[in-house]
Nucleic acid binder design. Structure first.
Length: 517
RNA sequence: GGGGCCGUGGUCUAGCUUGGUAUGAUCUGUGCCUCGGGCGCACAGGAUCCUGAGUUCGAAUCUCAGCGGCCCCA
């Protein structure tokens, strides 16, 4: 074990602020609940902000104290620590297998994109140019042409696609890469949700027909939904983005949207149909069976490390992180309760259990002797491990272990013989419990709005509203000015259409609207 | 884009109003203690007080600029 970072004792600053607030305005803010209300107040340790009381502060403390990320010397760029990266690797493993099964191949394209390529598709460059970071010199020599640090790789990939595609036999072309991208945001950064550099996969595909391409757009979106739902235990709103919010250079964009516990929305992943915009700009042409030269139809789609931030925000609590079992860096931690006189056989048994579990789950044995078991309980709860297996002298006598769930704190006494089936079952139960809680929370944040006043009211009370909207950028801009909100997406199955909630135009479709994080 | 809060050993923090080189905890090391919810005791170690400039005999403290973190409002 290398987890030597100390737990944080008692953050006085916050207590003082709380007390001052109470003196000045007794009703200003509820005192945050500690996670152990019965314990000595002076021993308040761990997170000092609560999810309900001060969400941003809670999240900031959580991801640092759970050793998921750390801040770096560069504003907006973060360090992903082993637990954060392990979660990302678990996501990668799953998604990578899914797309390979669809015939997608992994590649690697350069980080640097010549300006001339960036400029080839007009809408695309206009959409991204405010956030592009540029390399302008090497050593003391100025470069002939400045190089963009990729904000996304359409332009550099499609320059190659144009060379690789000659015949209809070269299609479909399905390429993916796992990489970092840089978007120099000016809004204040939020770790995982909005960082200036982030990790993602970007899939880029080219087809002979629009129908094939559009079919894939939806299939990939379904995979994103499946990732959130079945692996991250996060429900999503699936739909099509507005004209205003679509990807720069796309025909249209589809997305899965998530609702965070503070009522704000976060885009979970996107799948774009690019039409022939880029194939025309880059000359991606093929000869079809009738010897006609045609432009390819293209898609691009991406899922980023933002998914980790969304997952943690939704499931974690005032005791620390809560990882959904399927992507948890560690799924089971074994904490032996060590007494000197029973130490040897106990540790031997603990190691046996570890080996046994290792065949079925990601397991760690915490046999450090410099920490008490109580200390370890708290630390592993902070780190969000779904299941804790305790083994003490009493359990040795009864040939059992105590299993404690991270999500409910429920304790179970389990005989050694039933260990593996119980663990498997509990991990599955935790996933479903987290998912159903998250679904209920999302529903609470979605309200219908039938009037513009209703929409304004919903957005001001941190709700997402489902409203008829004309999908004109000018109208969306006006709503943004009024309320600070924007469209998330429009559900695919449109049951009714109506008049736009803002401008009153006929033929509006239903859109989710909310504030984004 | 506008407004506000904050930055002190690895970590958290007192001191700042009223200028005199820094408080306490945690941590790290050593020894004793041995653990069912963040054990206890003793000794020791650990500081560019975010950076730079200014005021001053003297700056963590006052002034200005910058960097970084957080919040709120377009």
């Amino acid at each position: 074990m290398s987890q030597q970072v100390p737990p944080q004792k008692h953050d006085n600053k916050h207590d003082h602020q709380q007390h001052q607030q109470h003196h000045a305005a007794p009703s200003a803010k509820p005192t945050p609940q500690t996670s152990h209300p019965s314990k000595d107040d002076k021993k308040e340790i761990g997170l000092t902000a609560t999810k309900e009381g001060d969400f941003s502060e809670w999240y900031t403390q959580l991801i640092q104290k759970a050793e998921i990320m750390d801040y770096s010397p560069v504003s907006g760029c973060m360090i992903i620590r082993p637990d954060g990266y392990a979660a990302w690797e678990n996501i990668q493993k799953v998604f990578d297998a899914w797309i390979k099964a669809k015939g997608v191949k992994n590649t690697y394209f350069p980080l640097f994109i010549p300006e001339s390529l960036m400029n080839k598709e007009k809408e695309h460059v206009e959409g991204f140019s405010p956030e592009v970071a540029w390399v302008t010199e090497s050593g003391k020599t100025k470069l002939n042409e400045r190089l963009a640090v990729r904000p996304t790789s359409e332009t550099i990939m499609y320059d190659s696609f144009a060379k690789w595609v000659r015949s209809h036999r070269d299609l479909p072309l399905k390429i993916n890469q796992w990489c970092n991208v840089v978007r120099w945001e000016f809004k204040h950064p939020v770790p995982f949700l909005r960082s200036r550099e982030f990790l993602w996969q970007e899939g880029h595909t080219a087809f002979a027909t629009k129908a094939e391409a559009e079919k894939e757009v939806r299939e990939i979106l379904d995979l994103y939904e499946k990732m959130y739902h079945d692996y991250l235990a996060v429900p999503v709103l699936k739909g099509k983005k507005s004209e205003q919010e679509k990807f720069a250079g796309a025909d249209y964009t589809t997305s899965v949207e998530t609702i965070l516990p503070n009522g704000k929305a976060a885009q979970g992943a996107t799948s774009h149909h690019l039409g022939q915009h880029f194939s025309k700009a880059f000359g991606i042409q093929f000869l079809d069976q009738k010897e006609n030269k045609e432009f390819a139809f293209q898609n691009s789609w991406g899922l980023s490390t933002r998914s980790i931030g969304i997952t943690l925000m939704i499931h974690s609590d005032n005791k620390g992180a809560v990882w959904p079992p399927k992507i948890a860096p560690t799924q089971v931690v074994i904490v032996p309760i060590i007494f000197d006189n029973s130490k040897e056989p106990l540790l031997k048994k603990a190691k046996e259990l570890e080996q046994e579990i290792a065949a079925h789950a990601r397991v760690t044995l915490d046999d450090r002797e410099e920490y008490t078991s109580g200390w370890k309980f708290n630390q592993w709860e902070m780190k969000g491990v779904p299941l804790r297996v305790e083994l003490g002298p009493k359990d040795m006598e009864k040939k059992q272990v105590v299993i404690v769930r991270r999500d409910t704190a429920e304790k179970k006494f389990v005989s050694w013989d039933d260990l593996i089936p119980t663990i498997t079952q509990l991990l599955d139960d935790i996933h479903h419990h987290l998912l159903s809680k998250a679904k209920a929370a999302m529903q609470q944040h979605i309200v219908p709005a039938t009037s513009y006043a209703g929409l304004v009211n919903a957005l001001h009370s941190e709700k997402t509203a489902l409203v008829p909207f004309c999908n004109q950028p000018s109208c969306e801009e006006a709503i943004k000015q009024d309320t600070g909100g924007k469209t998330l997406n429009a559900p695919f199955d449109q049951k009714k259409s109506g008049v736009c909630i803002k401008c009153g135009k006929e033929g509006a479709s239903m859109f989710y609207m909310g504030k984004s994080y």
